[in-house]
Amino acid sequence: MLKVLVPAVLVAAGIAWVVTAPKSVAEDEFVAISGAEADRGEVIFTAAGCASCHHAPGAEGEARLVLAGGQAFPSPFGTFKAPNISPDPEHGIGGWEVRDLANALLHGVSPGGGHYYPAFPYTSYTHMADRDIVDLWAYLQTLPASSEPSVGHDVGFPFNIRRSLGGWKFLFLKDDWVMDGNDLGAELTRGRYLVEALGHCAECHTPRNALGGLDRGRWMAGAPDPSGKGTIPALTPDKLTWSETDIAYYLETGFTPEFDSAGGHMAKVVTNTAKLEAEDRAAIAAYLKALPVPGSPSTGY
């Protein structure tokens, strides 16, 4: 019996080891992309909402560009703390190279080869275009450095075993789009990139399964607030009945069609979307209006 069991366990362990291994980009894949544009990177930075989570708690105005970290993000798995990603060489990412940023965004992997927790929304950023990563890298280096040390996450066993995140990624880090198809047209394709990749809207607006993976079958169907209080609204057309103009206007000014205003974390999101080009806000609105209604025949579930 043991003769069969031991090899079987070893094979299983071997597979698990391979599956959970951190992936990374090729050594010089990103260095080869030349002519990085920091001002283009600023648009990526804004659309991706980097500052919203990485600025210091309570920072306002220009201080939001100091990416000192420290904000807490409660979840059923523990409380995650955003790290310092300012250009400080010791406490921030000043010692990184562009490929380190690419590995973080595309694979959720640190320069040391460890897995990041998916509170950092790499399941969305994994769709980022190489060019955008290079430009973002150029922009990040123009920001002020902060020597504030990063604070550790408050995560208990078994979620504190980083290697197990490799298994999580195997299950939930997908490189295909939710709104699939190559013939979406220019506006929907742009909208999809802004919503599914940079804006990482689904991270809050899509419910999660027991393991914390996004339930793609109920994409944008609304979800409980991870803090435990309240719910985050659905964005599918059956629930979000605003017109495309209304959605774009909300993303510009924060005003709902009833002229109430955005609050909570969404207020931070609107601070970002307000800075985008009007075409980008329209593209987001078009994407949301094109979402399938959960449970409808077109979705197949």
């Binding site: 607030d225 309240g230 205003s261």
Partner: peptide
Amino acid sequence: TCKACHETYRIPQ
């Protein structure tokens, strides 16, 4: 100004 205040001083609905 609406947003700035609601972000901090209003319970999210």
